[in-house]
């Protein structure tokens, strides 16, 4: 346990030193603030609460940005240390392999979590300070959005770590990471849409569509935030899918959780058998 925390702590310290934390926080805060003040304009003053608009626009943004940041940080975690030669020394210490993998994962999730919380939190605080009336429900939706965003980030950190434990070279890991990102945030949905149009409702039923959506962590996140939360669903235009879908919020969160645990377990298993 102690070894695990030490590895995680070192990862966080390095993240702060490398400016990863600062860069990610500033990026997320800048976008969140921009969306909070400019993005509210089209919604006008009627109907939608200011924070709901922010939840919708920020979660749409998170789907693209968080996986990218998570994969950027994590794809290098293991193969990078192996290539630089620092892994050899680390493993000569009384540490088990799983402690190294999980410690690095935890460190990266903390980096992402802090960046998300501070970055997005800044937007909410700014709205509150600007005098917007924000209902308790909106705060809840916002908190759930932040929590699920961190979970989305953790899923992609786990995926990146898994890739990093598998490959022989950093370049390969980077390539696969880019591929994963494109697949999950762009290609998957387009392919799904194409299939649905081509299929004309012949074979792909609601249950199958649900399964296909859960197979992509980004979609599970999207459904959870855009359709699953009251008042937000109507705003995002995702209400239609949500009504036809049998996926409840706990199922969606469970799917995201599985997307964290399964790749992480895979990374541990692969790294435990690797020779240096």
């Amino acid at each position: 346990m102690k070894g695990l925390l030490l590895v995680a702590g070192k990862e966080i310290r390095e993240g702060m030193r490398n400016r990863w934390v600062v860069a990610a926080t500033l990026l997320l805060a800048a976008l969140a603030l921009t969306l909070a003040f400019l993005g509210a304009a089209p919604a006008g003053r009627v109907g939608a609460g200011a924070l709901e608009v922010v939840v919708v626009s920020l979660s749409s943004l998170s789907i693209f940005l968080l996986p990218l940041i998570a994969l950027l940080i994590s794809h290098d975690a293991i193969v990078g240390e192996m290539e630089r030669g620092t892994m050899l020394l680390l493993l000569s210490y009384p540490l088990t392999r799983w402690q190294v993998v999980v410690g690095k994962f935890l460190g990266h999730v903390v980096i992402l979590g802090v960046a998300t919380l501070v970055g997005y939190g800044a937007a909410a605080v700014a709205l509150a300070v600007a005098g917007e009336a924000i209902a308790a429900d909106s705060w809840r939706a916002f908190a759930l959005m932040i929590g699920s965003t961190v979970l989305l980030g953790a899923a992609f950190v786990a995926l990146g770590t898994f890739v990093s434990a598998m490959v022989e070279a950093r370049g390969t890991a980077a390539g696969i990471a880019v591929g994963l990102w494109l697949l999950s945030v762009l290609i998957w949905d387009m392919a799904l849409l194409g299939m649905l149009v081509a299929d004309q409702g012949q074979t792909i039923g609601a249950a199958m569509l649900d399964a296909l959506l859960l197979l992509n962590p980004a979609d599970a996140y999207r459904l959870f935030n855009l359709a699953g939360l009251p008042n937000v669903g109507q705003l995002s235009g995702m209400g239609g899918i949500a009504e036809g879908s049998g996926l409840s919020a706990p199922v969606l969160l469970g799917a995201l959780g599985a997307w964290v645990l399964v790749p992480l377990a895979g990374a541990v298993a692969v790294f435990a058998r690797r020779e240096l």
């Binding site: 310290r13 000569s92 009384p94």
Partner: peptide, 20 residues
Amino acid sequence: IEARRQLGCLPENVTFNAAL
């Protein structure tokens, strides 16, 4: 990991995390 508690190692061309 027991043996590694009592073991010191210096790999060839040792490298460290340059940021620390």
